[in-house]
Write a protein that binds this DNA or RNA. Structure first.
Length: 270
DNA sequence: TGTATTTGACCGGT
DNA sequence: ACCGGTCAAATACA
């Protein structure tokens, strides 16, 4: 399977990255009474790069990637699709972890309020700050409307809590923090993306309403598509720690990797 | 003019 | 061959 050339290795790792990137679903219910529709806001800067009609789905799926993909090499992506059953619900699938500045701790100021769909509400911003105060978190939690769609799903796990410690500010190159970070935050930190409801603009151009009703993914890592997905995440704990590619928070699925694979092959990561 | 979105084409996996 | 995901040229917008 593996040739002796670096490009072959690179190809392999790109495939492994795609396949092993943790995914999770985020169901957002839009408040009908507020007259809002469209997906949520998660305070990250996303750039839409595609839209597809999905077989059997009423609504098209939109594809977003981090705005800073090129400038900062952030490979976080997300998919947004309106639920067939309940059009007020958007299924959001996140892939990858933000390695850009906004993913570490910074919530960059909006370039323009309209276009950047940036929440100007402090709670949402605080939630993304590395040192959000417990007070803010408590206040924020009080206005959350938890979507319990997944509670009947036996796969769910990892109850969502609001830690008082810094969150989502892990530097990707801080290897000394990796073991703890991977065990506790590898994906949980990404779950710590909260969402504001959109206005009437669907899919992409949305920004919070002053009367928004916060509906946050219920903080549960839900519906792993398969057991392998869990393995993918768990494997991050081990394989990524010594990964020579610190910029990518991906895991290598041990099922797919020959344990005898010569990682120390000269030129492998060159 | 720079940036974001749209949308048909393209590609890889199944 | 079909389908999902991505690319990139065209277009829109500030």
């Amino acid at each position: 399977m593996f040739g002796s050339t670096a490009p072959n290795y690179l190809c392999f790792f790109l495939i492994a990255f795609r396949k092993a990137t943790p995914k999770w679903m985020d169901h957002v219910r839009v408040s009908c009474e507020s007259g809002l529709e469209g997906p949520h806001e998660d305070s990250y800067n996303w750039r839409k790069y595609g839209q597809k009609d999905i077989l059997g789905a009423k609504y098209p799926r939109s594809y977003y990637r981090c705005t800073f993909r090129n400038t900062q090499g952030c490979w976080a992506t997300k998919q947004v699709q309106r639920s067939d059953e309940d059009p007020t619900v958007f299924d959001i699938t996140y892939r990858g972890k933000h390695t850009c500045s906004q993913g570490n701790n910074a919530v960059l100021p909006p370039k323009s309020p309209e276009k950047q769909e940036k929440p100007t509400h402090s709670h949402n911003i605080d939630i993304h700050r590395a040192q959000a105060s417990q007070e803010s978190l408590t206040k924020f939690r009080n206005i959350l409307s938890v979507n319990t769609d997944n509670l009947n799903n036996g796969d769910m796990a990892y109850p969502f809590t609001f830690p008082s410690t810094s969150f989502g500010c892990m530097k990707q190159d801080n290897h000394s923090l990796i073991p703890w970070a991977l065990e506790n935050e590898s994906f949980l930190s990404d779950l710590y993306q909260t969402h504001l409801l959109s206005t009437t603009i669907p899919e992409s151009n949305y920004f919070p309403s002053p009367t928004f009703q916060m509906n946050v993914f219920d903080g549960i890592y839900s519906k792993p598509h398969s057991e392998s997905d869990i393995n993918e995440i768990i494997s991050t704990n081990t394989s990524a720690t010594n990964s020579p590619i610190p910029d990518f928070n991906f895991s290598l699925d041990p099922v797919e990797i020959d344990p005898n694979f010569p990682f120390n092959t000269p030129g492998l990561f060159s």
